[in-house]
Amino acid sequence: RYTFRTRGPEQMKRVVEWARRQNLSYRVEVHGDEYIIHAE
């Protein structure tokens, strides 16, 4: 189980790509310009 905090969509997309390659399920929360990605 991982939690990532990123700023801006570019970093968020990179984390999502990584999670997909690992076959993890993930969800993204948006708080202003901060993205929180939960993957497991």
Rank of each mutant, 00 (worst) to 15 (best):
R1H: 13
R1T: 11
R1Q: 10
R1D: 05
R1W: 11
Y2A: 03
Y2I: 09
Y2V: 06
Y2G: 02
Y2M: 08
T3S: 06
T3D: 02
T3L: 11
T3Y: 09
F4N: 00
F4A: 01
F4D: 01
F4Q: 00
F4E: 00
F4Y: 05
F4G: 01
R5Y: 13
R5E: 03
T6Q: 02
T6Y: 03
T6N: 02
R7M: 07
R7C: 11
R7H: 10
R7K: 13
R7N: 10
R7T: 11
R7D: 05
G8D: 15
G8M: 14
G8Y: 15
G8F: 15
P9I: 15
P9N: 10
P9H: 14
E10H: 07
Q11Y: 06
Q11G: 13
Q11V: 10
Q11K: 07
M12N: 01
M12Q: 02
M12P: 00
M12L: 11
M12T: 06
K13G: 06
K13H: 12
K13I: 10
K13A: 13
K13M: 14
R14Q: 11
R14P: 02
R14V: 11
R14S: 07
R14K: 12
R14H: 06
R14A: 12
R14L: 13
V15I: 15
V15A: 06
V16C: 07
V16M: 06
V16E: 04
V16I: 14
V16L: 12
V16T: 06
E17D: 11
E17K: 07
E17A: 12
E17I: 06
W18I: 02
W18V: 01
A19G: 00
A19L: 15
A19V: 13
R20L: 12
R20S: 07
R21N: 10
R21I: 08
R21Q: 13
R21S: 14
R21H: 07
R21G: 08
Q22M: 15
Q22D: 02
Q22E: 08
Q22V: 06
N23V: 03
N23L: 06
N23G: 15
N23T: 03
N23I: 02
L24P: 01
L24D: 00
L24V: 03
L24H: 03
L24T: 01
S25H: 13
S25F: 13
S25P: 05
S25A: 11
S25I: 14
Y26M: 04
Y26S: 03
R27M: 09
R27W: 15
R27N: 07
R27Y: 14
V28G: 00
V28T: 03
V28N: 00
E29C: 10
E29A: 05
E29H: 07
E29L: 08
E29M: 08
E29W: 11
V30H: 09
V30M: 12
V30I: 13
V30A: 08
V30T: 09
V30D: 04
V30F: 10
V30K: 14
H31F: 12
H31Q: 12
H31T: 07
H31E: 13
G32D: 09
G32M: 06
G32A: 06
G32P: 03
G32T: 04
D33L: 08
D33G: 10
D33P: 05
D33N: 11
D33V: 07
E34H: 11
E34L: 14
E34F: 14
E34D: 09
E34N: 07
Y35I: 07
Y35F: 11
Y35Q: 03
Y35S: 03
Y35W: 10
Y35H: 04
Y35C: 03
I36T: 05
I36E: 03
I36A: 02
I36Q: 02
I36Y: 06
I37H: 00
I37M: 03
H38W: 12
H38K: 05
H38R: 07
H38Q: 06
H38T: 14
A39I: 15
A39D: 00
A39K: 01
A39Y: 08
A39G: 02
A39E: 01
A39H: 03
A39C: 15
E40V: 11
E40R: 10
E40I: 11
